[in-house]
Design a protein around this nucleic acid. Structure first.
Lengths: 196, 196
DNA sequence: GGGCATCAACCGACTAGTCGGTATGCTAAG
DNA sequence: CTTAGCATACCGACTAGTCGGTTGATGCCC
């Protein structure tokens, strides 16, 4: 922890505090004390408090997009890939709950311009995921009774809400919840068994 | 608007501003100016800024709980009642999007004690809803492959996230989204047709 | 009906403190 | 001598909440 690069340490502590107390309720002073540095150091690495939040967002979005792409373009049937992608995003979200909490609580506090760019990244992710569903609907593997966009909004609503109830020391692991959620998604698309 | 009781006007404006700019980013000064009253008036009706937020929560929770109870204890088969309850909560959430936005963004900013009481109310709602699912699983009408609690978390995650993408002037009405979401819920419970 | 008391509703200047951000200085490396 | 990497002291803006005071309606006594 102590030999971690200063920039990373500031980001890590900021993430922890933002998730615990909220963005606005956390002062820059608290962050730098917690990270064992001074304000000067923080403003050396980041332009503003907003910039700090933006970096936290960008990091998690990059990670999720990379994983989704790898799974979607990887091997396996469509059902398998969708199931895998769904379970994976649940598991990684559970493993980085702080990021998830911060994201949906605080995005509205960013400057409008920054907000727009973050939302655009988010939409690209959503669309890549949706394309899997659309592909299955076109192929007749998935039911198209409910529009693909709505199904994806339905699913991601659940994922994004993990932060309000999931606990690492609860009865279920992130991987278990991931499998269940992926099952629910597939079932609601009328594609009961993943291996059919 | 002008002859609306002062207390209601303050609540309405606070709701609007909190949803638009966030709780922390909205000053008491802005609220009172927007409502056409003074700070004295606001602190005459409410104990604190927190109290204002708490009132907003309490109001929407009361309304939702009342509607759920009426539907759950009302006529119809289990499938019909669950479908009705699910569609209803989506529709009322869409109709009061501001409340929903504020709720999940700002609850962590309340005093711990207040937070606990709000969460307790919320849990009671969740449990009443879950009981419908459990009842169906026991009766063999719904699949019990996924635990009822998880199914309900899955569903309400989607509902609570309406605030991030739903717009009243979008392509779908609240009622339409409600029907789709209720369909998805029933389908994921393996209960395809509502009227079977 | 006139005088008096009471009370909720409301006003707005004020306080005490906090916040994000900056200006300047120092040190060590190259 | 220059630059990166910080530290420290400080500023101006803004905030939630307070408090002494005003206003107008109502009730009651004589």
């Amino acid at each position: 922890m102590k030999d971690e690069p200063v920039r990373q340490r500031i980001l890590a502590e900021a993430t922890r505090l933002f998730a615990q107390r909220g963005f606005e309720a956390t002062s820059v002073q608290e962050i730098v004390v917690s990270a064992g540095v001074t304000k000067g150091a923080m403003y050396h690495y980041f332009d503003s408090k907003d910039d700090l939040l933006h970096e936290i967002y960008a990091r998690v979005l990059r990670m999720q997009m990379e994983r989704l792409t790898r799974i979607a373009d990887g091997p396996g049937t469509l059902k398998q890939r969708l199931h895998r992608a769904a379970a994976d995003v649940v598991e990684t979200t559970a493993a980085n709950l702080d990021d998830s909490k911060i994201f949906f609580r605080s995005i509205h506090l960013l400057a409008p311009e920054t907000q727009k760019s973050v939302r655009a990244d988010r939409r690209r992710y959503h669309e890549r995921f949706r394309d899997l569903v659309v592909e299955g609907q076109r192929a007749g593997i998935f039911s198209d009774r409910v529009p693909a966009d709505l199904v994806v909004d339905y699913f991601f609503g659940s994922v994004h809400h993990l932060g309000t109830w999931f606990h690492a020391d609860g009865p279920l692991t992130g991987a278990q919840v991931g499998r269940h959620f992926a099952d629910l998604l597939l079932t609601s698309l009328g594609a009961g068994n993943v291996n059919e």
